[in-house]
Amino acid sequence: MEFSFVEELVHRLKVFQAMATNVVTVSPENSLRDAQITMREARVSGIPVVKDNIMVGIVTIEDIIQALDHGYIEEPIDRWMTRDVVTVEPNWPLSRAMSILDRTRFGRLPVLDEDGRLCGVITPESILRALLTELNRLLARDEKSEVTIETLESEALRLRFEIEAGDYDRAGLASVQLKRELASRGVEPALQRRVAIATHEAETNLIIHSTSGGTIIADLEPESIRLTVTDDGPGIDDIEQAMQPGYSTASDFIRSLGFGAGMGLPNIKRCADHFEFKSKPGLGTRLNLRFDLKPRSATGQVQPADAIPSL
């Protein structure tokens, strides 16, 4: 299956990011006439019925038309509302809510938190607004990543990059910024390249696979450069399998961008002088890398890797 950019986006966005939160409600004791007036004033076609903060049903424009037709418009909502309401949860992927809307042809889906409290409503309009806002945000971002620089007590310089999950647009940004920093500090080009490649692979991994992003810390010490890459999930089940060149769980969309060929970890290992990799499902992944400032071979150049099909 081929994933378009928008499909990837609606999968990444959560329901709470796309719901309308200024929801007009009615109470079950109100009459259907009250509901009709409220709907007209709020310009909505359906209203959740709420009692003591808990949603007990929904009344829609069709219910009002029926009530007008059959002459019970002055009766309480409680008697005529739909009680069996299809609802969604705030942390579901937006795509899940969209497929329910599509399947049921409902005009709205109330969003309930775990205590059954109404926290918003998903409608086609709220989805469209959320998508446009997200697209705008993505387009407006400039060529800067979230980098902070500090000097440690040991006098090492620490660069910290925060990497967002799903942020394909900025893949490689931490890598090129770190490389530029290394260049300005006189680190030799071959070492710059090894560090940049490892950083690129690591940040791409965080973007593609992490649940909520992660952090890359680069410590520039007198004898070495240390990279620490951490995330808090989902963690890797079979590390040996993940280290196999060509093994990948990336989607077609990610592959269409040129990533996800399954060579990240072996390539990182090839570039680093010291490689330590820890991961636990449910806990997260930690990668410790060290690059020695003294060249590891006569030339200090990137070594061809036996295990990696190289160009």
């Binding site: 893949a171 490689g172 890598s175 490389k179 950083t199 961008l257 040129g258 990533f259 990240g264 150049q301």
Partner: peptide, 28 residues
């Protein structure tokens, strides 16, 4: 990913990728 795995020196990249990510990969 293939470009990131190359060990060539003094080289130029030929690619069908037009994205900023491709350029950053070339820089890396």
């Amino acid at each position: 990913s293939d470009i990131l795995a190359t060990s060539k020196e003094d080289f130029v990249i030929l690619t069908g990728q037009t994205s900023p990510q491709a350029i950053r990969t070339a820089v890396a």
